[in-house]
Design a protein around this nucleic acid. Structure first.
Length: 440
DNA sequence: TCACCTTTGAAGGAG
DNA sequence: CTCCTTCAAAGGTGA
């Protein structure tokens, strides 16, 4: 499928609709976002509903240009990109992340954007230098120039790039200096030299970025873990159209990323974060059964969440009553969810139906299946199990208030696919979803 | 100071 | 092909 890169139909729609709360929300986030600023990529990313025709491309289809793998010429060629990513190395400025516009309240661009970043109102298409600027946000200027190994031919740094220094390895920022007198092994040197290119954000991450500030503002919560839980629920409560927007964004994000860094692999970042030790599970089987990861923290966070909810959602009831998936089910399918966000900010409403699944969701060609499949396959078909799982889930998790852990409810996207078949599926979905989680 | 927690999704590797 | 692991954001928390 071809995605019109330039389509600029309804551009700002998404933003408008959903994020009323502007910048001030970002109490925490230092970001400055001028409401008025227009994201350069906007055209590229417009998410007007029209844009997403439901039938749209399964995420995995790499649209337009992309497809480096297939070898389609269009790929990374600058010429193609030019309109969008014409960055000349020198011209680097700061490129706001495509989502930047999406995330006004935060003010932060996905790939951090400096205050000055948005100065250029990118005209719909013409953003040459500006684009380049887009990208560089995270790096120190000096890193930009050097397109280490994987940088896009254009030498365009992507916002995703982060200098090691920032996160983990303090040293190496000399990237600029090829000489980099480091005596260390070449390999090391190379590492240092190359900027850390982050993974593109997925749909949910994009959503989190956008909504985090809101949630924080609404609740007093600050812990990301708690907020993320809320966001996770909300995510599930989004209508499919809404989610589709994010999936779409994410897809573009990945696309852009791949164009900028053709050679980059997610694996490149492996091990950059210290290893997570969380693996309790392997050791303690019993525990693993119930709580895979043993979320000790769970307890604490949830409560807070609740707090949050109660205030906002007067109908705290919304909190999905735990058991009530049925109730949820009852509710009509869900496109309604749309407002849910704003209307019921914190409500944890279970979102059963809402989630009707997105047909076109990500269905990642191959990927789609992966996680989802695993979970879904195992249980999907058995509603009974769902109960089972529920209980299991309960056991495993603290599950504070009534609500089932949303996570349980949430059918991770993939699984939806199955659901897609029939609306009926919806009904089952919930339970199933539960299963999913539990299975994990 | 830094890993962990938490969420979903994507991607890669292992079997 | 399936399953598992890691990372992406983010900020408080505990070691």
């Amino acid at each position: 499928m071809k995605w019109p890169l330039l389509d600029v139909p309804g551009t700002a729609t998404l933003k408008d609709s959903r994020s009323p709360t502007p910048g001030h929300l970002s109490n925490k986030v230092p970001v400055v976002q001028h409401p008025h600023h227009v994201h350069p990529l906007t055209p590229l990313i417009t998410y007007s509903n029209e844009h997403f025709s439901p039938g749209t491309p399964p995420s995995h289809l790499s649209p337009e240009i992309l497809d480096p793998k297939t070898g389609i010429p269009r790929t990374p060629h600058p010429s193609e990109l030019s309109p969008y990513y014409p960055l000349s190395p020198g011209a680097v400025g700061q490129i706001p992340h495509p989502l930047g516009w999406l995330v006004p309240q935060q003010g932060q661009h996905m790939y951090s954007i400096p205050p000055g970043g948005f100065r250029h109102p990118y005209p719909a298409l013409a953003m040459n230098a500006s684009m380049s600027s887009l990208v560089s946000s995270r790096f120190s200027p000096h890193m930009v120039p050097h397109p280490p190994h994987g940088l896009h031919q254009t030498g365009i740094p992507h916002p995703a790039i982060v200098s090691h220094a920032i996160k983990q390895e303090p040293s190496g920022d000399n990237a600029g200096n090829s000489t980099h007198g480091s005596p260390s092994v070449p390999v090391k040197k190379e590492e240092e030299k190359r900027p850390h290119i982050k993974k593109p954000l997925n749909a949910f991450m994009l959503y989190m970025k956008e909504m985090r500030a809101k949630v924080v503002a609404e609740c007093t919560l600050k812990e990301s873990a708690a907020i993320n839980q809320i966001l996770g629920r909300r995510w599930h409560s989004l209508s499919r159209e809404e989610q589709a927007k994010y999936y779409e964004l994410a897809r573009k994000e990945r696309q852009l990323h791949s164009q900028l860094y053709p050679g980059w692999s997610a694996r490149d970042n492996y091990g950059k974060r210290k290893k997570r030790k969380r693996d309790n599970k392997p050791d303690s089987p019993q525990e693993s059964n119930f709580s895979p990861q043993l979320k000790k923290q769970c307890v604490p966070y949830l409560p807070s969440e609740k707090m949050c909810d109660s205030p906002t959602s007067s109908h705290g009831s919304m909190l999905d009553s735990p058991a009530t998936p049925s109730a949820a089910l009852a509710s009509p399918a869900a496109p309604a969810a749309t407002h849910s966000e704003q209307a019921q900010p914190l409500s944890l409403t279970t979102k059963p139906e809402g989630r009707t699944h997105h047909p076109h969701f990500p269905l990642p060609g191959k990927a789609s299946g992966s996680s989802s499949t695993s979970s879904s396959t195992s249980t999907a078909s058995h509603p009974n199990i769902s109960l089972h799982s529920q209980s299991a889930a309960l056991l495993s998790r603290p599950i504070p208030f009534t609500t089932l852990p949303p996570s349980l409810l949430s059918p991770s996207s993939p699984f939806h696919q199955a659901a897609l078949h029939s609306h009926h599926a919806l009904l089952q979905t919930q339970p199933l979803s539960l299963v999913t989680k539990s299975v994990e």
